[in-house]
Design a protein around this nucleic acid. Sequence first.
RNA 1: GGCAUCGUGGCCGAGUGGCUAGGCACAGCUCUGCAAAAGCUUGUACAGCGGUUCGAAUCCGCUCGAUGCCUCCA
Length: 493
Amino acid sequence: MNLYEEQSLKIYNSLSGKKELFQPINEGHIGMYVCGPTVYSNVHLGNCRTFMSFDMIFRYFKHLGYKVRYVRNITDAGHLVDDAEDGEDKIAKKARLEKIEPMEVVQRYTVDFHNILEQFNFLPPSIEPTATGHIIEQIEIIKDILVKGFAYETNGSVYFDVKKFNEAHEYGKLSGRKLEDMIANTRELTAQDDKHSPQDFALWKKAEPQHIMRWPSPWGDGFPGWHLECTAMSTKYLGETFDIHGGGMDLKFPHHECEIAQAEASNGKSPVHYWLHANMLTMNGKKMAKSTGNNILPGEIFTGENDILSKAFAPSVVRFFMMQAHYTSILDLSNEALLASEKGYNKLMDAVDAIENLPEGNATDFNITNWQQKCYDAMNDDFNTPILIAQLFDAVKHINLIKEGRELISKEDKKLLEKSIYAFVFDILGLENAQNNNANSDKLSGVVSLLIELRDEARANKDFATSDKIRDQLTELGIQLKDGKDGTSFSVS
RNA sequence: GGCAUCGUGGCCGAGUGGCUAGGCACAGCUCUGCAAAAGCUUGUACAGCGGUUCGAAUCCGCUCGAUGCCUCCA
């Protein structure tokens, strides 16, 4: 029996605005698509939060026993900088400024993206397709939409006819907008282009002579429109209808709205059962964004080389910090919040480390099965990681009590506790135990154990000057001694 | 201007009609040679003003404030 048959998972669906019982299209299988990054600059922490939310969701699905095909694309072409400019896309612009090939830009920042995600202990997606690798598929969809009459060609570009689409379908249903309102609120400033109406969006853009990223098409040389790649790749790898589509909140409109329109125009079906949107990471109360400069790079946090943080923070601490907030809530980054999370993280990890050596009794003072279900209940309620962490701290309390001999745990329950806490902490939340990752940890613990022994001797002789010297100097080195009932342990910060 | 979302104790952050998470910080106690660690105890918070209700932080209305989207954006 699979775990998913025992747990009933509810997910907040942006499309309906409600929490819904999750039921995959094919039993035991899940198709999930998440909009990936545009690789024209280093991935910043705000980007990471979205992907981390879906990494956690992916991990939980897998833990429940689902077979998941998780597709997360790399956008390596096609997103325009600005309508007012000449239609140059971000990657081409960056390439021109740096005098390199567009694919060099793409390669550089794709490598950076993977490198950062690895440090955050992400699981790789099942498929990571690129937009430029699916130009043919995109052209086919455009042809299809043209045939169905929901697009028109002007001067070598093809646009989606939103008004026409809205006659038979509902444009704006995801973001709660009405086409009439949008038309009413349009400022006719740019009497610019070839579009019939400002709401229309490009499926294919004609490439001007100076444009370096270009492909041949039935409408001449050009490049695909902003929203088409996700439709092409999700359809190709997950089918015309699939379970989950995720992305950042800021993509809800217009990007996801356009995806729905494209899919419905081409095959008549609503493409996605559950739309999930991860909320923004803010800094100083404002959205983190590349364009405004209000952002921080993961590398700057790991090294502490930045102006807003007082010290460096390990990737797992940052991950823990993010998991302490619900993925649909805005989260504000600050030094104080990270410091608080770091302490909590260390406390959690100390307890996790302690499980293995807990004394075994002939009974157990807390109901582990019951506790375990509370953890699942938290995750089943729209992946509520903050509640899960609260439950984990409940276990931490018991672990510490058992360690001090004030509560008991049986051998079997200890095994159960260890297994489930490892599952929630490492498999589902994706945390890593930074202290155990030290390559020299064996040697270090040998040295510290020796010092602890010397200190104990000094204390036995009431030579407190020596014992305090050992303790204080170790503290200065970042090694904290912890005296307990059964001797002294230590932790490295 | 339009459409959304949100406003929780010193800080971060869950919850959401009655049973009032959790982390950090603070205070007291236990333990300790002294500390630290750990444990215990204490904090009756939900922007403001009205309304619905036996009862609201949770529902409704208004006001104020913040943020997001409306243009590329995770």
